[in-house]
Design a protein around this nucleic acid. Structure first.
Length: 157
DNA sequence: GCCAACGTTGGC
DNA sequence: GCCAACGTTGGC
């Protein structure tokens, strides 16, 4: 299909791990509160593949694959006073934050830790690896996506 | 727990 | 619109 994009989303395993994701199968990716990341969430189209990354983990790294299940809609947590993601400046008419539904696809046979990602020449230019990269949602080039899938199917580095 | 690298907020 | 102060992310 033309102009299919690939993505990577970060999640903290203490909060929502790939195992949690595998149990839930489909989850709305709520709580992203960064405008650039939000714009990426809104650009996600149904069917596009998504790498799942564990941040704040030991070790951090890519752990699985998901797929966009539903186009982004206004993130309900921005309207929920009880939620830590409540945003008093957001209104139903003018929502600020959006979340797509993501569907679990698979857990990688072998998680690819960050230090290994950094060691791969084939991942030159991968945004995740750039200095100071903090975005929790980033686009991934096809070739980078495929490189990661390929090495994860091997037993070791 | 530290801190670099960002992003956001708000006074002016 | 500038920018200092503050908050957050996330690797280490």
């Amino acid at each position: 299909m033309a102009d299919m994009a690939c993505w990577l989303v970060k999640t903290e395993p203490d909060i929502f791990s790939i195992e949690d994701f595998a149990r839930e199968r489909v989850t709305d990716w709520t709580g992203v509160r960064n405008y650039q990341a939000r714009n990426f969430l809104r650009a996600m189209k149904v069917g596009e593949p998504v790498l799942v990354y564990h941040s704040n983990a030991e070790p951090p790294g890519v752990v699985g694959v998901a797929r966009v299940h539903k186009q982004a809609v206004p993130d309900p947590t921005q309207f929920d006073r009880q939620s830590e993601y409540f945003d008093s400046k957001a209104t139903k008419d003018k929502p600020r934050w959006f979340c797509p539904d993501l569907e679990f696809v698979e857990k990688l046979k072998r998680m690819i830790p960050l230090d290994e990602l950094r060691s791969l020449k084939a991942l030159d230019g991968f945004r995740l690896l750039e200095r100071g990269s903090r975005l929790s949602v980033i686009p991934v080039l096809d070739k980078h996506f495929n490189t990661i899938l390929k090495i994860s199917s091997k037993n070791s580095r």
